[in-house]
C-alpha cells in the first residue's frame, strides 16, 4: 500500500468513525469528479448542484455503514451518484439540455472570437450526444475521457472487467462520433 493509499484509508476510517472534518477532506477530494460526472449525465446546472449536494449528504449519513471491501472510496461515492442520477432520470424522463455555456471561462478558452461560437457549438453537440449513449457507455466515456481514470480503476468503479470496459469505451466513442457528425450535418443544413 502506498503512502497516499494509507493516508486515504486513514481519512476514510476517521470519516466512518464520525469525523466530519475527515469527511470534509474526502469531499474536497471527490467533489469535482462527482460533480462533473453528474453534470455530463444530467446537463441541467441547478439540478446538478442539488444532486451533487444530495450525494454527499447521503454519503455522510451512510458513511458509518461503509465497509472497505477492496474497492476505492470513490467507487462507493460513485455508486451513490449513479443511483441518484438514475432516480433523477426516472422522475424526469426528458432531459432538457442547458444550452448556456458551462462557464464564462469557456470564452477565454476559444482561440479567436470568430471561432468562439463554433467552439461552444461543438461542446454542446458533444454534451447532447453523450446523453444519447447507453448508461454504461456514458459512465465509461465520462470516467475515461473526461475524468481521465484508468481502465482498471473504471473496471473497479462500475464492477466490470477491464476488457469489457475497453469494449464499452470503443463502442461508445464510435457511437459518439456518429452522433456528433449527425448533429453537425443537421446544424449545417439548418444554417
Amino acid at each position: 500500500m502506498t503512502r497516499e493509499e494509507e493516508n486515504m484509508a486513514e481519512l476514510v476510517r476517521k470519516a466512518v468513525d464520525g469525523d466530519s472534518q475527515a469527511f470534509g477532506e474526502l469531499y474536497a477530494l471527490y467533489f469535482a469528479p462527482i460533480y462533473r460526472y453528474i453534470y455530463v449525465r444530467i446537463s441541467v446546472k441547478h439540478d446538478v448542484d442539488d444532486i451533487t449536494q444530495t450525494v454527499f449528504l447521503k454519503a455522510w449519513q451512510a458513511v458509518s455503514r461503509y465497509e472497505n471491501q477492496g474497492r476505492p472510496f470513490l467507487a462507493w461515492l460513485f455508486t451513490i451518484a449513479r443511483n441518484s442520477v438514475f432516480d433523477y432520470r426516472k422522475k424526469k424522463r426528458e432531459v432538457f439540455l442547458d444550452d448556456t455555456p458551462i462557464r464564462d471561462e469557456s470564452v477565454a478558452l476559444a482561440p479567436r472570437d470568430e471561432e468562439k461560437e463554433l467552439y461552444n457549438e461543438q461542446l454542446l453537440a458533444v454534451r447532447k450526444a453523450l446523453l444519447d449513449l447507453s448508461e454504461d457507455q456514458q459512465d465509461v466515456i465520462v470516467l475515461r475521457f473526461i475524468e481521465g481514470r484508468s481502465y482498471r480503476e473504471i473496471a473497479s468503479l462500475i464492477e466490470k472487467s477491464e476488457d469489457a470496459v475497453r469494449a464499452i469505451a470503443s463502442r461508445g466513442l464510435r457511437e459518439l462520433r456518429k452522433k456528433i457528425g449527425r448533429t453537425d450535418d443537421t446544424s449545417n443544413k439548418a444554417s
Partner: peptide, 24 residues
C-alpha cells in the same frame, strides 16, 4: 472534445464552501 468538456466543467467554489459549512 471530451477533454475540453472536462476543462470547462468547473465545480462552483461556493458549492464546496456551503457543503463544508454544513459538514462542520
Amino acid at each position: 472534445l471530451l477533454d475540453e468538456v472536462r476543462e470547462v466543467i468547473v465545480p462552483p467554489r461556493e458549492h464546496l464552501q456551503q457543503i463544508l459549512v454544513r459538514l462542520n
